[in-house]
């Protein structure tokens, strides 16, 4: 008996021939899923620009928070209704984070509990500032979040945890180094305002990034939002740098901290006792956070 298929029927598909198509179909699904997540979760981190047309990054997480009834952060709220929550321009002499100047608690005289937080630059500033604190009876609590940006501190729980645990009487922020080349300064401004709102009435000073290259506006924005009494610009300081050409080395870091201390004594709106140190402080253990994911 002839077992071959009748000539008018197509031959059965060869399973080997179909395998490659399956492989690429699977690849299509894997890459497709990855792109969906990237686009909708906004991990690309930026808006998509095609031939001059900007497709804004979807702030899915902000919508989800509203849907779930979770309390808004300023950032999330601003992402949804930017015009309703943020003034477009802040008066230069007033802190415009939603916390008015009169609402900021006066700084108690005498020893302070100083929370020094920010990116890897905290590690550079900390040794000499620790000497100052030892000399003047303050306690220093450094918190280093490597490679963090204003966005990291504005959105994660780290800032609130630190404020709750340490109960600082003065918050010193050293942030902005990772944002020298930021394109969307308006977004960074939202993050800065969110940080100020979280710090609330506690006295705050902000040490600007020590520019190793020209910035795209982060320093100007910080100066505008924080006002002259709270923002110490490090942009034009001539600091000795380490091997990476970015972080000041030990000498540069000490010089930087000296400049900041002198500014606090003379020009800062939050003057605290910062007499020049006469001895070297032991290294203060820092709270260290891994780079933001």
């Amino acid at each position: 008996m002839d077992s071959s298929p009748p000539p008018d029927r197509p031959p059965p598909p060869d399973p080997r021939a179909r395998r490659p198509a399956t492989a690429y179909r699977e690849l299509l699904i894997v890459f497709g899923a990855t792109w969906l997540l990237l686009v909708f979760h906004g991990a690309l981190g930026r808006d998509l620009v095609i031939a001059g047309v900007t497709l804004e990054k979807p702030e899915l997480s902000a919508y989800l928070r509203r849907w779930q009834g979770a309390p808004f952060t300023a950032e999330a709220q601003a992402a949804i209704e930017p015009e309703a929550t943020l003034p477009t321009a802040a008066p230069a002499d007033l802190p415009s984070s939603g916390v008015t100047a009169s609402a900021v608690a006066p700084l108690a005289r005498g020893p302070q509990r100083i929370l020094l937080l920010g990116d890897s630059m905290v590690e550079v500033l900390e040794p000499r500032l620790a000497d100052y604190c030892l000399e003047n009876g303050h306690r220093l609590f450094p918190a280093i979040w490597y490679a963090s940006t204003t966005a990291s501190w504005a959105s994660g729980p780290e800032l609130e945890d630190l404020l709750r645990e340490i109960k600082p009487t003065l918050v010193v922020v050293a942030l902005g180094s990772s944002e020298l080349t930021a394109r969307r300064i308006d977004q960074r401004e939202r993050h800065v305002r969110a940080i100020l709102q979280r710090v609330g009435p506690r006295p705050l000073l902000w040490i600007g990034p020590p520019n190793w290259r020209e910035d795209t506006g982060i320093n100007a924005m910080l100066a505008r939002v924080l006002g002259a009494g709270r923002f110490f610009s490090s942009a034009t300081l001539d600091l000795e740098r380490g091997a990476d050409g970015i972080h000041p080395n030990a000498v540069g870091g000490a010089k930087w901290a000296e400049a900041f201390a002198s500014w606090v004594r003379e020009d800062g709106a939050r003057a605290i006792a910062l007499a020049p140190p006469t001895r070297v402080a032991p290294r203060v253990p820092a709270r260290v956070y891994a780079p933001p994911r």
Binding site: V30, A33, T34, L37, L38, A43, G45, P292
Partner: peptide
């Protein structure tokens, strides 16, 4: 794959 690529790019 999507979660790892997301984590890497976001980090």
């Amino acid at each position: 794959f999507a979660v790892v690529v997301q984590a890497v790019l976001q980090g």
